[in-house]
Amino acid sequence: MSRPLSGIRVLDLTRVLSGPYCTMLMADMGAEIIKIEQPGNGDDSRSFPPFERGISAYYANLNRNKKSVALDLKDEQAKKVLRDLIKVSDVIVENFKPGTMDKLGFSYDEVKAINPQIVYASISGFGQTGPYKKLPGYDVIAQAMSGMMSVTGWPDSAPTRTGTAIGDILAGLNCCIGILAALQGRVSHRHGDRIDVALVDCSVSAMETINEIYMVENRMPQRIGNRYEFIYPYDSFQASDGWVVIAVGNDALWKRFCEVTGHDDWFAIEKYKLNKDRVQAHEELQKLVTAWTREHKVKEIISLLQSNSVPCAPINTVADVVEDEHIAKAREMICEIDHPVDGKMKITGCPIKFTESAQFNYSKAPTLGKDTKDVLANLLKMSSDQIDHFE
């Protein structure tokens, strides 16, 4: 069986995280990814920790299943090679500062003139249009400007960045979705498209109902810790030996939760029966539930609630996740692949699973320029003398 994107060729001019995450997903799904890197240093993330046997695991995880072609795009012969690659590719993805591709001679109009079928995707901090378009954009800037940091943390804490680079990841996801939509659209309208994805836009979109609180109620959303604004109990609670989350998502679950914890008296209290009222009474309910959880160990709470279909979970460490029999093993979210130079290494697997397509078979990330000669010789049919220029 082939994989869903088999036969799709992508020119990947991205680096660090947002773009490489997008093309990593496409590579996992079977697309041929030709990563264009600057000779000498390559993708900036090749120098990012952690390192395993001299290779950046940051780079190796995000760039598995890809080919590396080293081209200096300020060199005219390298530009000609890229133009020839554009002719035989389906997608080009870049995450330079807006205007950079234009200066290099690869604006959307110039690329479309070479290949009208091309899907041209750009990821940037603030997008290709608007008064902020020339400002540099990083994940933390997206989290700050989208309002995300203003609602992350505790009431008495400073605005807080999420533990992962969620702005970059959201941009990578949305770019991938846009590319897939454009490829499908190409089937009917017979031409490519331009995709413009901004880190800030993606983070604003992810704020969803939090934005509505302000726009509908004219109330400024605040930092509320692990509590959810719209449901309660839906929070983290301290056990005798750690922490758990409990997610009582509706009134029927509240009744069941009260029964299995031996607190029918809570259910009998009128102001706790409906979710909208529990949300209003969240402070006193937090104290009541915590008084119960503190009497039990994490495993005891999880066992009791899960066996009675009350949503809950331990707050795992990364070590817990890497060893988890469901997440790491059954769902194959922690996988072992060949190390780029020697031996094996572990990576985070692809979260998208297919039933009727080939299973994932991850190949190692390329060393810098590893595939330059092969791509130039076999895809572009260049002579040895021509290839020598790039070595």
Rank of each mutant, 00 (worst) to 15 (best):
Q128V: 13
T129P: 01
P116K: 11
Q143V: 09
E110I: 06
G147Y: 11
P131N: 09
A113G: 06
I141L: 13
A142K: 03
D109M: 04
M145P: 03
Y108V: 08
G137C: 12
M145K: 07
S122Q: 15
G147V: 11
K133E: 06
Q143A: 12
N115P: 00
I123G: 02
S107A: 11
S146H: 06
G125R: 03
Y108K: 08
F106K: 06
Y108M: 12
Y108T: 09
K134V: 03
I118W: 03
D139A: 10
K133I: 02
I114R: 04
V119G: 00
P116M: 09
Y138W: 15
V111T: 09
K134D: 07
A144V: 01
A144E: 01
S146V: 13
P136K: 15
A144M: 08
F126Y: 10
I118T: 13
M145C: 13
G137M: 13
G130N: 14
S122H: 10
N115S: 05
Q143E: 15
Y138S: 05
T129D: 00
T129A: 05
V111L: 01
A121K: 00
F106D: 03
V111C: 01
A113L: 10
A121Q: 00
D139H: 09
S124R: 04
Q117H: 14
I141W: 13
Q128C: 11
Q143D: 11
I123K: 02
S122Y: 07
V119S: 00
I114V: 14
S122D: 11
D109I: 12
G147F: 09
V119R: 00
P116R: 08
Q143Y: 06
P136C: 12
T129V: 12
M145Q: 05
P136M: 15
Y132W: 13
F106P: 02
V140N: 05
I114G: 01
F126Q: 07
Q128Y: 11
S107T: 03
A144D: 00
V119C: 04
K134P: 00
I123H: 01
Y120M: 07
G147H: 04
G137T: 11
D139Y: 09
I141A: 08
V111Y: 04
P131V: 08
